[in-house]
Design a protein around this nucleic acid. Structure first.
Lengths: 199, 199
DNA sequence: GCAAATTAATGATTTATTCAAG
DNA sequence: CTTGAATAAATCATTAATTTGC
């Protein structure tokens, strides 16, 4: 039967390579026009449709993020183990005195530096396609408001002198000491909450 | 436009993740000193200012509260419904689709109606691909079956008007022409932790 | 060596969340 | 506050890898 009921697109190695290269170059969510072009070009290497390209970017982005998150998560936990949660004062930037550093952590610092994906660092110069801002899209955008660079301190200045009433933790160390609910990424526990999806 | 109208801070994934983790750890209203530290640390991952951190916590706190409230409310209602079962309805084991309770009457099955704009040998002049606002409202068939061959354009046609913040590339040439067979992700072993189930 | 059986990847859908006009 | 638009997360489902018994 030549008619393989191919229900899904099977990308050729060339197609995958090109897509990955584009991803590395910063493309994340191509718009319709871009997808048209990509599709047209990739069609040279094999059967492909616009939606395939669309889905590929969606999936790839999501899965890269997931991977990144998991790594970050893990590092976080390691770091937590290394750092005493007790400290209330800001951790001095000299963590080198840490008693025992776990063998495979080459990270001298006290908080995660390791998660450099190749694209998180702007490297002007080696972008072949239109290297974008590179900021991926996770939180996309948070309000910026119109406060001058220094004004913000004024706004919360009183916070410092706030009655303990509203002050949650005086000076908790900046990096979580207790792994309260690290999503489902690292420490088990799927958020059960209300989802009663019986799939 | 030399001046990117980036009036807003675009947090990197790492920044967001770290902030979220701090939030989970109990931080709610960091004072000036804390914000300074946080900012300094997050600056490693990308441009950031103190006000961004400040606002982030403000917003996040507010929205988490809102979210929680809503969930609690819903949960309450569910409990009430369970305690007063009007009709004996066994859990619908129908593999097809189980409708969830929609708090807001958000109709799930809707998806962007297919604009079905066939390209009609239209050259990829990169004009607005799905800009049709109009006429054909033939939203007849509901895409439960998925996306038809051309429907994908409908899904992303808004992308054309992307958030300026992260707007990636406008019309750059899509093809790097350099094929490095390097894969940044050589399938880092183990798959997802708990996601698989109930197959 | 080879296929059935099993597992890991990943394409395709569905659902939940976020953002910002109105 | 409500609601539409857009996106990301979660999930489903199929294909490719691989293991395993012969």
């Amino acid at each position: 039967m030549p008619q393989t009921p191919s229900t899904r697109w099977c990308p050729t190695p060339e197609q995958v390579m090109i897509l990955e290269e584009m991803y590395r170059s910063g493309m994340r969510t191509p718009n319709a026009a871009q997808i048209q072009q990509i599709t047209a070009h990739l069609a040279f290497y094999g059967k492909i449709e616009g939606k395939n390209v669309f889905y590929w970017f969606q999936n790839h982005k999501a899965r890269e993020r997931q991977k990144l998150r998991r790594r970050l998560c893990r590092h976080h936990q390691l770091l937590l183990l290394n750092n005493h949660p007790q400290e209330n004062s800001p951790p001095p930037p000299s963590p080198t005195e840490t008693a025992h550093v776990h063998p495979h952590t080459t990270n001298p610092n006290f908080f995660p530096h390791d998660f450099n994906m190749q694209e998180t660092t702007n490297t002007p110069g080696l972008n072949l396609v239109g290297k974008i801002d590179t900021n991926e899209t996770l939180g996309d955008q948070y309000p910026t408001a119109g406060i001058a660079s220094d004004d913000w301190t004024a706004m919360m200045d009183h916070n410092t002198g706030l009655p303990a009433c509203c002050r949650p933790l005086k000076t908790l160390d900046l990096f979580p000491t207790k792994s309260t609910g690290l999503r489902d990424e690292c420490s088990s526990s799927k958020s059960s909450s209300c989802s009663t999806s019986t799939n």
